[in-house]
Design a protein around this nucleic acid. Structure first.
Lengths: 218, 218
DNA sequence: GGTATCGGTGACCACCTGGTCATCATAGAT
DNA sequence: ATCTATGATGACCAGGTGGTCACCGATACC
């Protein structure tokens, strides 16, 4: 019998609990620092069971991360499609909020993503990061290009450079929103609406406007 | 006799070699993953010697990182003071280039910084990150404020928000420049002048202009 | 020559790691 | 009642970890 079959056969409740606790362990300690012994102890099951389910540590990690990218992708697609035709600033604002929302509702996955970003010893790192990076490009590019086509942005605009800049601000904004939950350390400047959805919306709106129009429209 | 005295007494060449190899070890594997055994082997000295010098792993790490922040601080201060009075875009460009330059000439320190960013198990993490974050705020804020005072930027500009945005783009730009050396994985969009100083300058200039004027001046 | 002081050494320690596997408990089929 | 299949277990393994310390060789002082 296949190892993964065993995991699929156990009660769904237990499946969820295992994956949840595992993602928490990886989020807290990274791949290297995560301990299978500690995880088994916290779950109250034998270590051998976990290895029966996933083969090895890497298999468990893959299982934890799989599917999460699709989830984010769905939210972004929805934001892009629902705002088609709206002004650039409003569309960017939506993307900012979707990103922040994802980080807040999947804090463990987001923390793992952040750790993976600059830590080479995660398995599947290149493939997973490529997927996420592709998301940014795939959803920001059409938004910028539509604004260019509609005349809202000049024809001379360098689209890849603009996408790069928007992506930089997006990632940083999301980090900031998720900061308290993930203990990301001290951040620059004042707190731009942490935990407060209303202030978060306002900050996103102002950032989006500033992105579209530059500092001159601050 | 104090442990650190022992280190100060050995030949300077050896001191430098030890610190250099240690920073490489931390850069490659992070704090947790760095191995004192491996380091001793690569240096060709006994493990006991390293512990005599620095007490423990944490002491070694502190010694490696100390002083590097001052170095970056000096370069930034120079950039800020030398460009006083110049247009905003030119000043931002200089800051971008200084950051990229630092990451390129101190790749190990920069890699350690990146790993520390989202990895909670680094010693002294909060203090060190706070120092770096303070640098951004300390040098970007006066630049923006001067542009506001000189009328180049409107009085309505939200300075902290503008600093936040500039910092986001700055950090991302530096990451991109240092990417190949540090194996940061796939990046968004095309390569904006990696390794090529001339293209790097050009990208910095365009990014700075785009920051100051927004997408409309692409 | 004797001795104290220094840097340098590596065997050794307790502890933890990911991973294995013989063994057990149980439930369903015959 | 017996056999089989499946999930669960935890003692056990080899190997690596950060850290220690009794000892060594050399140099300098008396």
């Amino acid at each position: 019998m296949d190892a993964s079959d065993t995991f699929r056969n156990i009660p769904p409740d237990k499946q969820r609990r295992v994956l949840e606790e595992a993602s928490s362990e990886f989020a807290r300690h990274g791949f290297l620092g995560a301990s299978m012994n500690r995880l088994a102890a916290r779950l109250g099951i034998a270590k051998g069971s976990i290895f029966k389910y996933f083969g090895n540590k890497e298999g468990l990690f893959a299982q934890v991360f799989t599917g999460s990218v699709d989830l984010l992708s769905g939210s972004l697609r929805q934001a892009r499609d629902e705002t088609a035709g709206l002004p650039l600033a409003e569309r960017l604002e939506r993307v900012l909020l979707v990103g922040a929302q994802f980080a807040r509702s999947h804090p463990n996955i987001y923390r793992i993503y952040l750790k993976m970003l600059f830590n080479e010893d995660f398995p599947l790192r290149e493939r997973l990061l490529a997927q996420v990076r592709a998301l940014s490009a795939r959803f920001l590019t059409p938004i910028i290009e539509q604004a260019k086509a509609s005349g809202e942005l000049p024809q001379s605009l360098d689209v890849p450079l603009a996408v790069f800049m928007a992506d930089a601000v997006l990632e940083r904004f999301v980090q900031l929103q998720a900061a308290p939950a993930m203990d990301a350390g001290p951040q620059i400047g004042p707190t731009f609406g942490l935990d407060d959805p209303e202030t978060s919306r306002l900050t996103a709106a102002r950032l989006a406007r500033m992105l579209a129009g530059g500092f001159t429209v601050g």
